[in-house]
């Protein structure tokens, strides 16, 4: 059984990607399970989806613990503290990732020994690769890696995309995009079944004092410990020469990302910024620009 685990951000079309891959495999005559992992995820938050593909009936359910192929739609996820997809791979898992880094840079930066396939969607027109079309590109790259025929991908996309009410022109454009991505990905790593058993003994749970074992949080304001920033590829930069210290950016930031320096200039906490761009739009003198997030 081939287990494909997809990781992206809410709003990128990762669920659609899993459906395109699932349907393509289904059309090829395989047994398939696909499943998005719904949680409290919001636009921009890390999310995942799973596809299982097998020649035999599938006797598995739920999340994938032993991915054959780990697909990562956005390399900012590798910086994530709480939901890092690299933590979930096994030795022989093939990693397919959308990044501008080269294979060797990636391997050394994250000390990765796994077989790697990189593709760089940044080469495409950002309008095309804007969410949620990203999912379509990711699906195409995945199908290529799984050595599926593009014709299956095309059929699958027609089925899935009309299901989410895309019109004919949009579907044609999406297929065109998928083909370009499909052709761009150089496969060469074989995706194999990865053993699923990880042993862990049974824990004997004892009674704990209710002060501990009641579901409450006695820490305060600790949400900064979770990955939050890097939700977007962009970050606001302020031109301090022209900033009038009017505080508008500070007031309107929904995420409390602004503080002030000793001279009263606004300072962005980039770990807290979700890149909503409200501050840029509202700055009355237009001195905030959006810059692609530093990749290093």
């Amino acid at each position: 059984m081939i287990n494909v685990s997809l990781h992206g951000r809410g709003g990128q079309g990762i669920k659609t990607a899993s459906h395109i891959i699932g349907t393509a495999a289904f059309l090829s005559g395989s047994y398939v399970q696909d499943q998005p992992l719904y949680g409290a995820e919001r636009r921009g938050a890390p999310i995942s989806a799973y596809v299982r593909i097998s020649r035999q009936p599938i006797l598995e359910r739920g999340t994938i613990e032993n991915p054959s192929l780990q697909v990562i739609s956005d390399d900012s996820l590798l910086e994530s503290a709480a939901d890092n997809p690299l933590e979930k791979i096994r030795e022989s898992t093939v990693v397919l990732i959308n990044t501008s880094l080269t294979k060797s840079d990636l391997a050394s930066k994250y000390s990765l020994k796994n077989p790697l396939i990189v593709f760089d969607l940044a080469k495409f027109d950002p309008e095309i690769i804007s969410r949620p079309t990203l999912g379509i590109a990711v699906a195409a790259a995945t199908c290529r890696t799984l050595e599926m025929d593009f014709d299956l991908v095309r059929q699958s996309m027609i089925k899935e995309l009309s299901g989410i009410h895309l019109d004919k022109d949009d579907i044609a454009m999406s297929i065109d995009l998928a083909k370009r991505v499909y052709d761009m990905v150089t496969h060469g790593e074989t995706v194999m079944e990865v053993s699923g058993i990880r042993e862990s003994g049974i824990f004997e749970m004892k009674f704990h004092n209710p002060a501990v074992s009641t579901c409450s949080i006695t820490a305060t304001g600790n949400s900064m410990l979770r990955e939050r920033g890097r939700w977007s590829g962009f970050q606001p930069i302020i031109d301090y020469e022209r900033c009038t210290k009017c505080m508008i950016c500070y007031v309107y930031c929904p995420d409390s990302a602004y503080t002030f320096d000793s001279k009263g200039y606004p300072v962005v906490n980039y770990d807290a910024c979700k890149g909503c761009n409200i501050c840029q739009t509202e700055c009355p003198v237009k001195v905030i620009t959006l810059v692609k997030r530093n990749k290093t």
């Binding site: 939050r228 770990d271 979700k274």
Partner: peptide, 8 residues
């Protein structure tokens, strides 16, 4: 900061 709500 650090909530799970949508950007914006």
């Amino acid at each position: 900061p650090g909530t799970m709500l949508c950007a914006g």
